[in-house]
Computed example of a mutant assay.
Amino acid sequence: MIAVIGAAIAPGIAILSYFYLRDNLQPEPISMVIRTFIFGVLLVFPVMVLQYIMQTEWNWRSEFVADVVQSAVVEEFFKWMVVYFTAYKHVEFDEPYDGIVYAVAVSLGFATLENLFYLLINGLDIAFWRALLPVSSHALFAVWMGYYLGRAKFSGTARKEAGYLWISVGLPISLHAVYNAIFLATQHWLVLIVPFMAVLWWQGLKKVQRAHDFGSKTLTSRPH
């Protein structure tokens, strides 16, 4: 049991630590990051209930549409809502990279408890693949979400803010939908998922650097 819990928690903590330690401008209070992570953990339960209701009560004509709505739309939208209402409006959200930190914290809280449930049911044999694919993909979808939340927060105009906010929720849903589609579309999913994840990491790390660059400009332009 201890081994299963450790294997379930370790990937999420490791990835969150990586993105948190990349915040070299004005690091967020660790208490805020932990709180946001816990919100992500708690989010699993209402999402699971909603997904169960949708799966049993809704008459889906397409497995793909059902999977996209029940997984990609529901999970990413509710994670976005948690970040928006608990972190986006908080005084500690004071530079663009903070969006990435808080979005990743919520997503990895969600992914960590989900991962624990999977490992308790299926055992440690799938722990490596769970860490490599579902857990890290949740974090990478969150990087895109957080990057555009950061751009929205410091956009300067209401119109730009609204545009970036729409992107911050729409893009993670789209990426999550593509991720799910790869597993549904073909038995040879490994051929597609490897380049897809490589591009996610590559572009995600570029978003991290851009958030830092934008944050540096934002901080230097503020009156002292």
Rank of each mutant, 00 (worst) to 15 (best):
A162E: 14
Y164C: 03
F183H: 05
S168D: 11
F154M: 04
T157S: 15
G150P: 02
H176S: 06
A158K: 13
L184R: 11
G170N: 04
L165T: 01
S168K: 08
L175E: 03
S174L: 15
T186Q: 02
E161Y: 01
Y164V: 03
S168R: 13
R151K: 15
R159T: 12
G163S: 14
H176F: 13
T186P: 01
G163W: 12
A158V: 09
A185G: 12
A185I: 10
S168Q: 11
T186D: 12
A158W: 03
A185R: 06
T186L: 10
K153W: 02
I173L: 10
Y164F: 15
S155C: 04
I182E: 05
I167P: 00
A185N: 09
F154N: 00
A177S: 14
A152S: 12
T157G: 01
V169Y: 04
E161K: 15
G156I: 10
R151M: 15
V169L: 09
G150Y: 11
H176W: 05
S168I: 13
I173H: 05
V178K: 09
L171Y: 13
A185E: 09
Q187M: 09
S155F: 09
R151Q: 14
T186W: 08
Y164P: 00
A181K: 01
S174G: 11
I182A: 06
A177R: 07
A177Q: 11
L165M: 14
Y164S: 03
G156S: 07
H176Y: 09
H176G: 05
G170I: 05
P172Y: 11
I173A: 10
N180W: 06
G150R: 06
Q187R: 13
T157C: 04
T157K: 02
R151D: 02
E161D: 04
P172S: 10
L184Y: 07
R159G: 03
A152H: 07
V178L: 15
A162V: 08
L171R: 07
S168H: 11
S168M: 13
G163A: 04
V178A: 14
G150E: 06
I182C: 06
L165W: 03
Y164H: 10
V178D: 06
G163Y: 08
K153V: 10
W189F: 15
I173K: 06
V178G: 04
R151W: 02
A185S: 13
R159P: 00
W166C: 05
L175A: 05
K153C: 09
L149N: 02
L171A: 13
H176C: 07
S168E: 10
L149C: 03
A152F: 02
S155Y: 05
A158C: 00
A177Y: 09
L175Q: 08
A158R: 13
E161T: 15
H188D: 10
G156V: 11
L184F: 01
I167M: 12
N180C: 09
Q187I: 04
R151P: 00
F183L: 03
L175P: 03
I173D: 01
N180F: 12
L149Q: 11
A185L: 14
T157R: 07
A158F: 05
V169C: 03
